[in-house]
Design a protein around this nucleic acid. Structure first.
Lengths: 210, 210, 210, 210
DNA sequence: AATGAATGAGTCTTCATTCAT
DNA sequence: GATGAATGAAGACTCATTCAT
């Protein structure tokens, strides 16, 4: 992710060697575990280090301070999320609008819902993080991916593609978040998801009619 | 709001007299100010009390602990928000679907956007709060208000009103949140809002066609 | 009790009227209850006042500060204890040494054991109280009462009555305390009490033999 | 001492290295000093740490909370006390009853009286401590030590050794405490101590007569 | 005289960060 | 490079005491 974050949030070193990478992964994993198991308020550097099986000192070799760790964690998460959605979009190039919408909703919904505790934990961790850059970079990637997909549609022809696109993303991303925050029963979630898909499809069809 | 929250989050005394009520209001206001000005991580009881112009001791007479304060603050906020939306819905009973959708989106959007810093601050404050009860109560009020409104529509006739309704709310609420989180320029926000309204209107019209 | 305590521990006013006396009694009772129910660390003026059914302000009319309350409470307790033992001793004047010892042990043991929770609570409350004067006054009364009793013995004739007396009191009082601190089963307590009585009787008999 | 205390009173780490052990000792010493110099009410973690020449943080690395510190302090004290008495008893195995009694009284009396301010301070510190386990373990050790000693007596033969033993300990321990609590002049204390010894000796002789 | 809201110094405890080994 | 003991500032919360009503 090309987020060019505030300098103070940069990790101290880009982990290049296998060893380092494994350590960093362990730290990330530990962070998530602590976040899930103990909550944001009990997310302490000591606890993370302990759970990761390294010493605090070592942790501070990779992340100059706690915020940098959380920043990097969210960065990694958004990176992977973006990748998944990009792939899904790419796979629909030239397909029907219905397939596009379905793929988009499915990819995002599944990614967010698969490990709902992780999703929640990361949302919590990001509060008060100076993460505008992160969000911006993620949004840019998503915008690019879905716009390219929509543009490749054989039949549709959008007058104001940018607007349609940003609306589509806002609606999909926003709705997903809202649904899992309300903690509705699975059956209802599935029903809403179908409605959402239909709604977006209808929106795109009416927007892209020549 | 009838949220019957976990006992430990209850405020200590219901402010009855004018004096008390003024104090409580000052504390709420101070909390928001600190949240906006210093951020969630620097939201300390001392700072809030100082800003509110009371002693910590006094604060603890009204709120048994910090969490109770934050809980009460969110409760009050959601209460007012719910009221505004309820009123807006009530005013549209019997009107056209277009008017209904416009009123709903406008009411919620404006309430959330008017003081965007406050909105953000409250979202941040609620992280890691045991606020399921709060959210549940709010959702129930909204569900009731919009369902009653939709049911009063002269022409529409929804097969599965409940589903349509919960979808509508999820989409509207979710999208609003997503838009202001992305911090888009106002002009773009307005454009998206129009698109959202149109989208929802189209959704309702197709769902309510007899 | 003629304890002439440090000025700062004096109760503010000697309760003379019936009303006051009832209030003071209620406060004393409440103090004991809180002590038993919540422990010394949670013995707060507010809690005591609440339990006594008066306001803190009122309590401070009777006791200038917390220490004065605790001091007065212990004073009253020792007063009553002294009275009981004095009566028991007085009743044995001229009787046999055996009767004297039995009466002394019984009176003290029962007084301390009847409400073991109260006894414990008061011991706890008195820690760090500047109660030398209290203890001194109590000791003096006890010394006087038992010495007068022993002196009235028809047959015994103690060479060093003072020493015998202070030894007797130290042994009896000390043993009682030790026994209930160890929290032994009742049957064992009774057995020890008998042994103690026999031991003291034997001691007095050998000391008072002419 | 095998006191198996409530988990929450356990010290955090067993000091193994010399460094740690020195720190722990310094903390214990500081605690006693503060207790003596300022009293139980002014025994604060900050004050102890300061006096011990370490930071509060360090103190909390060894003791998870204040109570654990006080618990450990009392544990150590009772451990040493028990050791002293055990040694004294062991040294009298096979000797005369008179020597046994004298050794027991002397050992306990001296241990308690040598540093009367420390003794008092520790009694005060233990109030409201959940120290039943501690007292129980100490009592068990004392019971064992004195019973073994009495049993080794060449001439005596106790019908109910257990009862005689527990009585003996209650009387000795209780009397010692009572005497130093009354703060009598040294000459008088010595005299009482002799009386106590004689009294116990007489008790044992009459109990152990075959 | 009684009340009880208000005060704020003082407590315990946590935790990000450093640095000697 | 790794470790983890040590630091101490900062936070949540309590409670004896006062005083306006």
């Amino acid at each position: 992710m090309d987020a060019t974050p505030p300098d103070r949030l940069r990790a101290r070193k880009k982990p290049r060697q296998a060893r380092s990478s494994a350590t960093v992964d362990a730290i990330f994993e530990a962070t998530i575990q602590v976040l899930i198991g103990e909550g944001r308020n009990r997310l302490t550097t000591t606890r993370v280090a302990e759970r990761a099986g390294v010493s605090v000192g070592t942790m501070y070799q990779y992340f100059p301070h706690k915020q940098a760790l959380i920043y990097a964690l969210n960065e990694r998460y958004l990176d992977r999320l973006a990748e998944r959605v990009e792939e899904a979009c790419l796979a629909q190039h030239g397909r029907s609008t219905r397939e596009m919408v379905e793929a988009l909703v499915t990819a995002y919904w599944d990614a967010k819902t698969e490990r709902i505790d992780v999703t929640r934990a990361l949302y919590a961790s990001a509060v008060e993080l100076d993460n505008e850059a992160l969000i911006g970079a993620f949004a840019a990637r998503m915008d690019a991916a879905t716009m390219a997909m929509l543009r490749s549609a054989p039949t549709a022809n959008y007058t104001d593609l940018e607007l349609v696109n940003v609306t589509l993303l806002s609606v999909v991303f926003g709705t997903v978040r809202n649904v899992f925050e309300r903690n509705l029963p699975p059956s209802e979630q599935i029903a809403i998801r179908e409605q959402l898909t239909a709604m977006c499809l209808s929106y795109l069809e009416s927007s892209g009619a020549s």
